[in-house]
């Protein structure tokens, strides 16, 4: 392009009046079968992107994203779990050498060394060779790290009963359950049962829902005092009259569903 004296501009701007070419460069001079990105290669990339998008949307349509009950800081016994890609860090903290007195090792030193090493990889592995056999230390360290991450993720995920978890945390909307909160039994329920079975008898991580219970009054009285399954005995504290009121209240609520 011309420069210096004789250059022409558009108006008083700095834009040159001479038009630049819109024809792509000729890449046939380059080594191998080099191709122009625009528009030749972009058309192929477009195809790969479309196939990827179809696969992705199939996943999205087949699996609605999960949503649990609204956050309730007062519930007891909820087992917190991070998203799957943090499980390896979470699992690491369960090892003896990474928890308790060694917590710093688990939360800072080990992840710090691993991610710091990843960040500074070009300077740690600074030889000229690019092929994996020419840099065995770097490649082995990476394989070790990858194996550790996969193993920790697997260990963490395998210990979780995902189906049970989803079942325990199914959404129960308060207004779907018709509960008479003025019932004297509800007050007793609040004092004795709510912390595990929830404000609307919907259940929680520490206790099942009572809404589908098929027990009668006497059975409920017995369970409240002696416990059942994982529920310990002695949960109920109050008089026999109160126990009767409570059991009748619960049967009332669960009975409503059968009408």
């Amino acid at each position: 392009m011309k420069s210096g004296k004789g250059m022409k501009f558009v108006g008083d701007s700095r834009v040159r009046a001479e038009r630049t070419s819109q024809i792509p460069k000729d890449y046939s001079e380059y080594p191998g079968r080099t191709e122009a990105f625009w528009p030749n290669f972009l058309l192929k990339e477009w195809l790969v992107g479309s196939v990827f998008l179809i696969g992705f949307l199939t996943l999205v349509l087949a699996h609605p994203s999960p949503l649990e009950n609204v956050a309730d800081p007062t519930i007891i016994g909820y087992t917190p779990l991070p998203d799957w890609y943090f499980l390896f860090l979470y699992e690491l903290l369960k090892y003896e050498f990474a928890s308790g007195a060694y917590t710093l090792l688990g939360i800072l030193v080990i992840p710090g060394l691993a991610f710091g090493g990843l960040f500074l990889a070009p300077f740690l592995d600074n030889g000229p060779g690019r092929r994996p056999p020419k840099r065995p230390v770097a490649v082995l360290m990476m394989l070790l790290g990858l194996t550790a991450v996969v193993w920790l993720t697997y260990e963490s995920a395998a210990a979780v009963d995902w189906e049970q978890l989803a079942e325990d945390n199914e959404i129960v909307l308060a207004d779907e359950v018709d509960i008479d909160e003025d019932d004297p039994g509800y007050e007793i329920y609040q004092d004795n049962c709510m912390s595990c079975h929830g404000g609307s008898l919907e259940g929680g991580p520490a206790g099942p829902s009572l809404l589908e219970s098929e027990h009668d009054v006497d059975e409920i009285k017995e369970i409240a005092v002696d416990g059942i399954g994982e529920m310990p005995s002695g949960i109920f504290s109050g008089s026999d009259d109160e126990l009767e009121t409570l059991a009748e209240f619960i049967v009332d609520v669960t009975g409503d569903d059968e009408d």
Binding site: V15, Y30, P31, G32, T34, A36, F37, N40, L42, K44
Partner: peptide, 27 residues
């Protein structure tokens, strides 16, 4: 637009580059 703001070199810089053979799954 091009006459006023000379837009061609801007998008040419982004779009007009070569794709070497060794990164092209077609080859």
């Amino acid at each position: 637009i091009d006459e006023r703001i000379d837009i061609t070199p801007i998008w040419r810089d982004i779009a007009d580059h070569e794709v070497p053979e060794h990164v092209n799954p077609a080859h």
